[in-house]
Simulated scan of single mutants.
Amino acid sequence: MKAKSFAVIGLGQFGMTLARELANADYDVLAIDDKDENIQEIAETVTYAVRADVREPDILKSLGVQNVDVAIVAVAENMEASITATMQAKDLGVPCVVSKAMNTLHGRILEKIGADQVIYPERSMGLRVARNLTSNGFEDIFELSSEFSMAEFRIPADWAEKSLAELKIREKYKINVVAVKLGDEVNVNIDPAEKLKEGCVLVAAGKNQDLNRVKRTI
């Protein structure tokens, strides 16, 4: 399922950022929060913003949350609101309900009441920062699973003016280059015969062990 519409429930820093990014990517976004100032801040960015207390029975149904593809419950700091909103969204038949958890116990509760995905933003960001700080050679790294990651790395000087086909990156390192970045330009329609410019950054996906082999060469 390719999501086209989202409900973001809870507009703290995480929910606000998420709602803005989804709206800026041209998705339909319904933003819900119980604070007027948060609704006013996001109102001109998203498709629809409404002030509501998600602990009220059937409130999400009255707001049309059942019509979205994905509901993100981002009110983790209020466990009652988090659990109630997650249960309501699942009862309404939302295809995918993603709920933010404060801790492991909270996450287990959310899983038991039916959340399709439980996220721990602070933990994930902490892990990512730690990996970035210890991953010399990579500009950035993002874990896709326990075995696979996506990494950005600046090409070595001796790769400049050579093509991906010449370098045989897939054959040598068993990774897939998914984009080439040069300054603010990002090219995802890669021509394997095109010469790489000095200082460009490759975005590659692959097994962690294979990415680590690349890291040792750059």
Rank of each mutant, 00 (worst) to 15 (best):
M1K: 13
K2I: 15
A3D: 05
A3Y: 07
A3M: 05
K4T: 14
S5A: 11
S5Y: 13
F6R: 07
F6A: 10
A7K: 07
A7E: 01
V8Y: 02
V8M: 07
G10W: 05
G12V: 00
F14P: 06
T17Q: 09
T17C: 11
L18K: 06
A19T: 04
R20K: 12
A23K: 04
A23I: 05
A25K: 12
Y27Q: 07
L30A: 05
A31M: 06
D34I: 10
K35M: 10
D36R: 08
D36T: 15
E37S: 09
I39M: 07
E41K: 15
E41V: 10
I42S: 03
I42N: 04
E44R: 08
T45D: 13
T45K: 15
Y48C: 14
Y48I: 07
V50P: 03
R51S: 15
A52K: 07
A52W: 08
D53H: 14
V54F: 09
L60D: 02
L60R: 06
S62E: 13
S62P: 04
L63S: 08
D69T: 09
V70I: 06
A71E: 01
I72Y: 03
A74F: 10
V75F: 02
V75G: 02
V75R: 02
E77S: 15
N78G: 04
M79I: 15
A81Y: 03
S82K: 12
T84N: 08
A85I: 12
A85Q: 06
T86Y: 06
T86H: 08
M87D: 11
M87E: 09
A89N: 03
A89C: 08
K90A: 10
G93T: 02
G93E: 02
P95D: 05
V98Q: 00
S99G: 01
K100P: 01
A101I: 09
M102V: 09
N103Y: 09
N103I: 11
L105H: 14
L105S: 14
H106E: 09
G107Q: 13
R108N: 12
I109L: 15
I109T: 15
K112V: 13
A115R: 01
D116T: 11
I119P: 06
Y120E: 03
Y120M: 11
E122T: 09
M125D: 01
L127K: 14
L127P: 02
V129Q: 13
N132Y: 08
L133P: 07
L133G: 11
N136Q: 14
F138G: 09
F138Q: 11
E139H: 05
E139F: 07
D140V: 08
I141T: 14
I141R: 10
I141S: 13
F142V: 11
F148A: 10
S149R: 03
M150P: 04
F153D: 03
R154D: 00
I155K: 04
I155M: 07
D158K: 09
D158F: 11
W159R: 02
E161S: 14
E161T: 10
S163N: 10
S163T: 08
A165C: 14
K168G: 01
I175A: 02
I175Q: 00
V177N: 01
V177C: 06
D184M: 08
V188G: 05
I190W: 02
A193G: 11
E194P: 04
K197V: 15
A205S: 14
K207R: 10
L211Q: 07
K215L: 12
R216D: 15
T217R: 13
I218F: 12
